[in-house]
Amino acid sequence: MVRIAYMAAAITIPPLASIAWRGFSLLNAFVALIWLAALLAFFFFAVAYGILLHGLATLFAFVIILRHRRPGNEDHKFTPRRLIDYAIGLYLILSTSLTGSLLWYGINAPNGEPADNAAVERGSKIFVTSCHACHGTNNELAPSLDGIVGKEVAANPSFDYSAALRGKEGVWTENTLSRFLLAPDQFSPGTKMAISPLTADEARDVIAFLRSGR
């Protein structure tokens, strides 16, 4: 609830503040639009694209302002007051970027509880005895497990996966990884993965280790 209120505030306050400061104008409407576009970019693409979009739009806004400057048009002279206005506008735009990324983070980070260090530690030992022989570094026997949680199933183009695994859609989740480790041959009949089935606790620990990226 608090988060939603915060989100709503972040979305509405900066453009409203800008309008309150400058009064409604085309430029302000434009800034508000960029805002929305950037926010959408934050939520649906990478934050990097959002910031990129902001940068371009800001540049664009300044170009418009500069082109608007005509001799005798007092309204477009760079008075100190006006420079402050622009600075505030720029600040508002950049602060949106920041707000957006913080929001994105606020929404996405909580799905992983902070890593349970004891589980990661236990998982690292299981990795050594059950996985490392084939999935270890510089090994051509099996694909790397770097970032496997969230990675597409059968994603390595140079590895010859079993037909069953290649036929699977989607990304590896903790749930599917766990099912695979508990009963490799049921999850993926004819799999090439040679591992004695793990217990539920062992699977949870080794997945915690894989998630930790250590």
Partner: peptide
């Protein structure tokens, strides 16, 4: 003692 998985050792 804890040893490697014999299936893949």
């Amino acid at each position: 003692l804890k040893y490697h998985d014999l299936l893949s050792s």
